[in-house]
């Protein structure tokens, strides 16, 4: 039958098959690969487009390294908190009955689709000097606290904005977890904690890894959260890129982007060594 198809219409079919992806491939080269080459090109040139290492060298000075370290630290903290809150949440949602599960997942996704500018700003309303939290403190006869413009507020903003990105992939691997494995483990004498440690956690590693990446990447590169909740009292790497862009200092913006990208690539490479296959645990359940 196959040869029959080939004889009659095979050429047409294979032509369509061959060219179907062509527009996308051309597009990806032109608007994904080439722009990344431009990042490298701008990084290693000055305003006259002659070769220079100054931009890259400027990055490896105490000022920028300190900013980089702070960005890594805050993004790691945010990722850690997201995992701490998101993992149990995903676990319990996956164990809820089917109807309830659908509603719960919808509720987790709802804030995810709300603009993060709004979600970040909502925390400003709560944490401001004369905000809701402090007015509650005042009415209880306590002293108002300085809650904003510090690293803690920025981490809180990151956790709040990106928590759904941690829950969703972990939830989707938890769904695939065979309940018989859990039963077998408890039948064979594991207690609840042992079942978790020996069966559930190892099986959920791919989801955890994609969750970590999906929270860490936007956290380390944010500039809005730090601008608003950090109040510009300290800079993160995203802030510096944005500042250089607004100052029309495109070559420096490119150099910092390049360094950030290479660091993230290295990080992902290490993470992928932990996960055997990254195929599971996508954002799409």
């Amino acid at each position: 039958m196959k040869t029959a198809v080939k004889n009659r219409d095979g050429r047409g079919v294979s032509l369509l098959r061959r060219i179907a992806a062509a527009p996308h491939v051309a597009w990806s080269v032109l608007f994904v690969v080439v722009p990344l080459i431009f990042v490298a090109y701008y990084s290693f040139t000055d305003r006259e487009f002659s070769f220079t290492l100054d931009n890259i060298a400027a990055f490896f000075t105490p000022r920028y390294l300190q900013i980089l370290w702070r960005s890594v630290k805050l993004a790691l903290l945010a990722t850690g908190f997201c995992l701490l809150i998101g993992y149990p949440a995903a676990y319990f949602i996956a164990r809820a009955d089917a109807k309830k599960q659908k509603i719960l997942i919808m509720l987790i996704m709802l804030p995810m689709w709300m603009n993060f500018l709004i979600r970040t700003y909502a925390w400003m309303v709560i944490l401001q000097d004369k905000g809701i939290f402090n007015s509650v403190l005042l009415s209880l006869g306590l002293k108002p606290l300085k809650l904003m413009y510090n690293e803690g507020a920025v981490v809180l903003g990151m956790v709040y904005d990106y928590l759904p990105y941690m829950i969703m992939p972990i939830y989707s691997v938890m769904l695939k977890l065979d309940p018989r494995l859990v039963e077998a483990a408890s039948d064979l004498g594991c207690n609840g904690f042992q079942v978790l440690r020996k069966v559930v956690v190892p099986q959920s590693v791919p989801g955890v890894i994609s969750g970590i990446m999906m929270v860490f990447v936007p956290s380390i590169s944010t500039f809005y959260i730090s601008q608003k909740l950090g109040g510009g009292t300290f800079l993160l790497i995203g802030d510096v890129i944005e500042n250089q862009y607004t100052a029309n200092n495109l070559h420096m913006a490119a150099a910092i982007s390049l360094v950030l990208m290479i660091l993230l690539l290295a990080g992902m490479f290490v993470m992928n060594r932990f996960a055997d296959d990254g195929a599971e645990g996508g954002l799409i359940p």
């Binding site: 080439v34 936007p218 990208m261």
Partner: peptide, 13 residues
């Protein structure tokens, strides 16, 4: 890629 890098790379081009 972080959005900021996608944005910067396209803008540069």
């Amino acid at each position: 890629n972080p959005d900021i890098i996608t944005g910067i790379s396209l803008m540069l081009m």
